[in-house]
Structures are given as C-alpha cells and as structure tokens.
C-alpha cells in the first residue's frame, strides 16, 4: 500500500488474497506452511498442537489480510500473527497448568531427556529435533521465541524486532541470553556434535581467527 514499500515477493498474491481470492491465499499457505508449522512446533512441542495452531494462524491471517499495509514483508507479518496465536494459546494453557497440575511434569521431562540421550539411535532426526525442542521448552517464552525466530527460522534481528514489536537491543539481548542458557541445556548435543554442521551463520565466532 505504501509507495516506497520494501520489495515483497508475496505482494501480488497478498493483493489478490485481500480481494477475496482464495486460490491466491492457498498459494501463500503452501509457500509458508512449513515455516509456520515448524515455528508453532518449536514454540509448543507436539505435532497435533502445532498443526492446530499453524492452521489457526493462517485462518487469522486470511481474515485480517486487508489490514496488512505492507509496512513489513508479508512473511514478517505472518510470523507476527503466528506468534500471537501461539502466545494466546500458551498463556491460557499455562494458567490451567499453574492451577491444576502437579509439579512433577518438569522432572519427568528431564528424565525423558536423559533417556533420549542414552539411546543408541541418538543421531536420528526425530530424536535430535525433540531434544532441541525440549531444550527450547526449558527457556522462558520471550527468550524461546526470539532464538527460534533467529536460529531456526533464520530471520535477521530487524525482522525479529518487527515481529515481536520490541526494540533491537531487546532482541539482541534475548538471543544472547537464550544461547547462553541453551549451551547448558543442549550440552550433550554440543559435546557430540563437535565436528558437526558448520553451516551455521558465522555469528560472533567469525571474528576470533583474525
């Protein structure tokens, strides 16, 4: 809508969807379903829950698409909608849990971790992903979302700041602290993965071999 808007690869489809073209929106759903589903999954653990929430995010996005002004990328806006849907869900769920659950749950998760790590087929994708997701689940929600958007979804800091509607400095600090905590939570993975994928972004380590 704004004249000097960022070049958004989705702009045309978004425009058509905003005029009620469901086919155009279907294309957007298929384009982003993996990212949105995986974001919901990393934030919640559990396929069924993530499936429901990812669907909900797309439904809300479609209903609100006329309010999207193109101030950010459509993708950023879609992330924003998803984070809000998941947060709403998590806050109502945690309210129930705080009221009714016994505190055994956390301990049970740790036992699960230990068992998973001792399994011979540890390198298996599913187990590896679950281990990461469990570690993420051990973070406070604000740290978890920020580091998920950065290191799993690959958004840059500016995009994350827009998605979460917080200042850049907040994003930087949340991601830094999240990684500090995850270093402990992911210790077994980090230890075993010494020679592991160097396909990460250079991040901060880039400067140390100067």
């Amino acid at each position: 809508m704004t004249p000097d808007t960022i070049l958004d690869p989705d702009a045309e489809l978004v425009r058509q969807a905003a005029q009620g073209d469901r086919h155009a929106f279907d294309v957007l759903v298929r384009r982003y379903e993996s990212q949105i589903f995986n974001l919901a999954r990393a934030m919640t653990r559990g396929d069924d829950e993530a499936d429901d929430l990812a669907q909900e995010a797309f439904v809300r996005a479609y209903r609100a698409i006329r309010s999207f002004r193109g101030d950010s990328l459509f993708r950023t806006w879609l992330y924003q909608v998803t984070v809000n849907v998941v947060r709403t869900h998590l806050s109502s769920r945690s309210r129930w849990r705080r009221l009714w659950s016994t505190p055994v749950e956390a301990g049970a998760d740790e036992d699960g971790d230990a068992a998973a790590l001792a399994t011979p087929g540890f390198e298996d994708d599913v187990v590896r992903r679950d281990t990461i997701d469990r570690a993420l689940a051990g973070l406070p929600e604000d740290l978890r979302v920020a580091v998920t958007l950065r290191d799993i979804q690959g958004l840059d800091y500016r995009e994350i700041a827009e998605t979460l509607q917080v200042p850049m400095g907040t994003v930087e600090s949340r991601i830094f602290r999240a990684r500090q905590r995850l270093r402990t939570l992911l210790a077994p993975l980090l230890g075993r993965g010494a020679g592991a994928p160097a396909l990460a972004r250079p991040a901060v380590a880039a400067g140390d071999e100067g």
Binding site: R150, G154, F176, L186, P197, A198
Partner: peptide, 9 residues
Amino acid sequence: QGDVASVLH
C-alpha cells in the same frame, strides 16, 4: 554462542 546457533540451525 556459535555452537548453539549451529545446532539450532
């Protein structure tokens, strides 16, 4: 920081 980013990525 770099190790954690690699594993998550």
